[in-house]
Amino acid sequence: MTAMDAYNFAYLDEDTKRMIRRALLKAVAIPGYQVPFASREMPMPYGWGTGGVQVTAACLTPDDRLKVIDQGADDTTNAVSIRRFFQRTAGVEVTEETEDATIIQTRHRIPEAPLQERQIMVFQVPIPEPLRFLEPRETETRRMHALADYGLMQVKLYEDIARHGRIATAYAYPVRVEGRYVMDPSPIPKFDNPKLDDSPALMLFGAGREQRIYALPPYTRVESLDFDDHPFVASKADHACDICGATESYLDEVITDDQGGRIFVCSDTAFCRSRQEDRQ
């Protein structure tokens, strides 16, 4: 018996998938609102993308081609193990090319290549509540969302400016969805925030430990919070990729020795590789 036959299609049982699917439809109908769902134990630890994996499992069809990235890379442990998980339990095709994928599960990045209408992005989310570090009580944050009372978040960003002279939040930068819900875009760098706005692809967010699912339908207005005199800036390291020379991609800083040596490389490995192949 192969692993494919030993598990239900895409691992989860049908009752669980139905429950997640109902939550996903609500999430799409109420963009930016965090829908509670009965997150299951998955055969991987919390923090490894159990929310994203459950969303992907509920969305996968046998015809899909899956790409999984971790901080932009296709070849890191988290990405490789989740990709293999769905190869074994759903028998779906996988790819590293952004353009070829129909579902892209991601930890903390949005690919550099433009997304398309036929694609679904699935984000792994550790803490879905953008107000959680400002207000620990769930009853309070829920009421704040109900009343669209987001003054506390503006105060937090203002304190950044008072302390550092600028908004120092560099990742998980809060956004406002269609002028209503304030949402945590997951810990993507703020460089990626503009890609959330008016995206042709559907974007789904799954938080396994925190048991929340939320969504951005395609072509949804997504604004990064800011101030008139301190507008939002999507920043990246002021450098070109030391491998492919790209100046427009998000870069990782890699320490190369203990003499202070360092290089900057694209965090999106598929993007970097295709540029290297084009140059040859």
Binding site: N8, F9, A10, E14, K17, R18, R21, L24, L25, V28, A29, A58, C59, L60, T61, P62, D63, L202, A215, P217, P218
Partner: peptide, 19 residues
């Protein structure tokens, strides 16, 4: 074949609900 048919069916529902 409930797992595969419901997966395909759900994608249609998700598609029309998001567009």
């Amino acid at each position: 074949d409930a797992p595969r048919q419901s997966a395909t069916a759900f994608r249609s529902v998700l598609e029309v609900m998001s567009r």
